[in-house]
Amino acid sequence: MNSASGEGEKSSTMTTGHSCRLFSLAEIESATRNFDDELVIGQGGFGKVYEGRISSEEAGHVVAIKRLDSMSDQGEIEFRAEINLLSTLRHCHLVSLIGYCDENKEMILVYEFMPNGTLYHHLHKAHTPLSWVTRLKIAIGAARGLDYLHTGVGTQHGVIHRDVKTSNILLDDNWAAMISDFGLSKIGPTNQLVSYVDASVKGTFGYLDPEYFYTRKLTRKTDVYAFGVVLFELLSGRLPVDERNGEDQCSLVRWAQKCVKERKLDQMVDSNIKGTIFPKCLKLFAQIADRCVHSVPKERPTMTMVLASLQAVLEVQEKSNQSGNSSGVTGFSWNIHNYFVSGTKPNSGTYTQTFD
């Protein structure tokens, strides 16, 4: 299994101002053999996703075609939002929208095809033996995508995804993470202090920030909370909510927070990766995830800090793998390290401005 490629190979591939192709319904029907169920590769509240082939410069270009179900809760507003957003944003860790079809009451989105499907599938359905380093690289890729959205790089505004979860993290042929499904995303100023009051809370149970649920106030820290749940999923292999684990362990977040508080980190590790995580890396990774799901949004890190911290964890893990030992957190700001360990906010350095 190939792991995701590194930052150096990926950092220069972001652009803006991408134009989407308008497909005719006849083209979509041809690509999907008239919506043949044998080509269905995914299904959710929005409808079905088909693997299809469209005519292009490359003969038989493979794509993912999402057909909105007429009975779905996600309607025209979400459809338009996704087209508008992905026509503006382009990043190596955001799934690319190739085009759409809006004909005869059909609402269809055509995406770049991701050969390895969703992270959710590999963690919870296929039980793919993803290595610890591969999981770290997936987390880093997803963090890069979210950081790009939040900071508004290359755009005038930032974006809150609002539905971060493992089923919305797709994996390409190199197992690099791609953030997908922007139908619920909210565009606004990049100021971290800005919040929006939602008449109706959007998101997915198990990833939903309790503060957002109770106050209806949406900020970038709402995404940070959900990403913390994803980190705990990657570490433990557990579902965000699983009643099979009994009442006291049904919630992944509550169980993981208890493990961190009681310093029982080994209990959190997926059996598939036990014994492969350098102890310092396990401690810091768990602290990062724990900080992301802090009950007070202002105490959560920004995605910029989460990204820097995860990159440091990977650096230490890879050095440990090479030498069998690692003496410290090389190349990692101790201000950031102390923040995750003790909760002390950094008072100097590159990341001071990232806290609100």
Results as ranks from 00 to 15, higher is better:
residue 241 V to I: 15
residue 250 C to F: 01
residue 283 K to I: 09
residue 286 A to V: 06
residue 203 G to Q: 08
residue 219 T to Y: 06
residue 203 G to D: 04
residue 229 V to G: 04
residue 240 P to K: 05
residue 198 D to E: 13
residue 254 R to E: 13
residue 209 D to Y: 00
residue 235 L to C: 08
residue 215 T to S: 15
residue 237 G to D: 05
residue 203 G to C: 03
residue 254 R to G: 01
residue 216 R to V: 10
residue 202 K to T: 10
residue 283 K to Q: 12
residue 218 L to S: 03
residue 223 D to L: 09
residue 269 V to C: 12
residue 275 G to W: 01
residue 232 F to T: 07
residue 255 W to P: 05
residue 215 T to K: 10
residue 201 V to L: 08
residue 249 Q to Y: 04
residue 235 L to N: 00
residue 277 I to K: 02
residue 204 T to P: 11
residue 229 V to K: 02
residue 235 L to R: 02
residue 239 L to D: 06
residue 203 G to W: 00
residue 242 D to C: 03
residue 262 E to H: 05
residue 271 S to Y: 02
residue 269 V to T: 11
residue 220 R to M: 11
residue 287 Q to D: 02
residue 236 S to N: 10
residue 212 Y to W: 03
residue 227 F to P: 06
residue 234 L to M: 13
residue 268 M to W: 05
residue 241 V to Q: 01
residue 216 R to H: 15
residue 274 K to C: 13
residue 209 D to C: 02
residue 205 F to T: 14
residue 210 P to E: 03
residue 287 Q to K: 13
residue 228 G to Q: 07
residue 278 F to N: 01
residue 228 G to M: 04
residue 212 Y to C: 10
residue 219 T to S: 14
residue 242 D to V: 03
residue 250 C to H: 07
residue 262 E to W: 06
residue 238 R to N: 08
residue 278 F to D: 02
residue 244 R to E: 09
residue 286 A to P: 01
residue 219 T to W: 05
residue 213 F to D: 03
residue 262 E to A: 12
residue 262 E to D: 14
residue 222 T to Q: 00
residue 233 E to G: 09
residue 281 C to R: 00
residue 202 K to Y: 04
residue 266 D to V: 15
residue 204 T to Y: 04
residue 243 E to S: 14
residue 285 F to V: 12
residue 248 D to M: 12
residue 254 R to W: 03
residue 215 T to G: 02
residue 278 F to M: 11
residue 216 R to G: 06
residue 287 Q to R: 13
residue 247 E to N: 13
